[in-house]
Amino acid sequence: MPFTARTAEETAAARLRFYADGYAPLPGLLTSDGLDELRAETQRLVAIARRRDFTMSCMDDSPRHMTTLGGHVIARESSLVRELYGDQRLLGLVGAVAGEPPLTVPDPLERHVLNVLHRQGDTHGAHTDDYPYALVIFLEAPHSPAHGGLLQYVSRAGSLADLDTDRACSAHHRAGDAYLLRSDTTAHRVTSLTRPGVRRTVLNLAYTTRSAAPRSTQSARELYI
């Protein structure tokens, strides 16, 4: 999978941002060839993905209006995504930004998931994750922040309600971009798409560490089984 090389200065800046905010943007992580290859693969996987429309009780009844595919199905259907998840260059980048070596997560359901917002009003509501690190790679993204699909996040959140305070930050990304999130302690959500025809397609790669405390919620099973 072709990745864009990052300089030592870019990596150091991403590490500082991650330590401060629990979030580090990785613009242009995929080369144009890498984006084309991975986008074609995810378009194939979307054909077997499942539509979800519900509120998640374990995450303060926040809404889910999206189409998803769980890691257990992706592992069966896509050698490309399996290889991406364990790519040593990618793991090296995650470790350099996070400051510790990432490990694959024990639950195949959550290792690598596909999340698609493709209808007006689609949203991935407020939540935290079971594992400490999420590397989110964009295959499709709204062209303008005004079209929605923004990441909203609060580092070291006391509760999901912090997303409705002035502590919340927003970030817009483009196809080929990625970001690393400290996803177990950072409250986050994706804002609603505001117009028809807009799509936001991401692969979310979850990683853990030796020091991470075990944490388990029903959220992944509600969204990906």
Rank of each mutant, 00 (worst) to 15 (best):
T165F: 07
D164L: 12
P145L: 10
L139V: 00
R182C: 02
R174W: 09
L160D: 04
P142G: 13
H147N: 12
A161D: 14
D164V: 09
G158Y: 09
D162T: 08
R182F: 03
R174N: 11
C169S: 12
L150M: 13
L151G: 06
A141F: 14
S170R: 06
D164C: 12
A146F: 10
Q152T: 13
G149C: 11
L150T: 02
L160Q: 04
Y153E: 01
V190G: 02
Y153T: 03
H172S: 11
S183G: 10
S170Y: 03
A171Q: 08
G158R: 15
Y153P: 02
V190C: 06
Q152H: 14
G149A: 12
A157D: 11
V190S: 06
H143Y: 07
A141V: 14
H147P: 00
Y179E: 01
Y153Q: 04
L160G: 06
V154D: 00
G158I: 06
L151I: 09
S170C: 04
F138M: 12
D177S: 10
H147C: 10
D164P: 09
D184Q: 09
S159T: 14
I137V: 15
L139Y: 01
A187Q: 08
D164T: 14
R156P: 02
Y179K: 02
A175P: 08
Y153F: 15
H188W: 07
Y179S: 01
R174C: 11
V190M: 05
S155C: 15
L160H: 05
L181Y: 02
A171I: 01
D184G: 04
A175T: 09
A171E: 05
A175I: 06
S170K: 04
H188P: 09
I137K: 01
C169T: 06
A168E: 08
S159Q: 10
Y179H: 09
D166N: 12
R167M: 10
S155L: 04
T186S: 11
R182K: 10
R182W: 05
E140K: 08
L163C: 02
S183K: 03
I137L: 15
S155G: 14
R174P: 02
H188Q: 11
L180K: 04
G148Y: 09
A141Y: 14
G158Q: 15
A187T: 07
C169Y: 05
E140Q: 14
L163M: 02
R167P: 03
A187F: 06
S170P: 00
T186N: 08
V154Y: 00
F138G: 00
H188A: 07
L181E: 00
V190H: 01
G176T: 00
A168I: 07
A178L: 11
L180V: 04
Y153S: 04
A171S: 13
F138D: 01
P142N: 13
D162W: 06
G158V: 12
S144G: 02
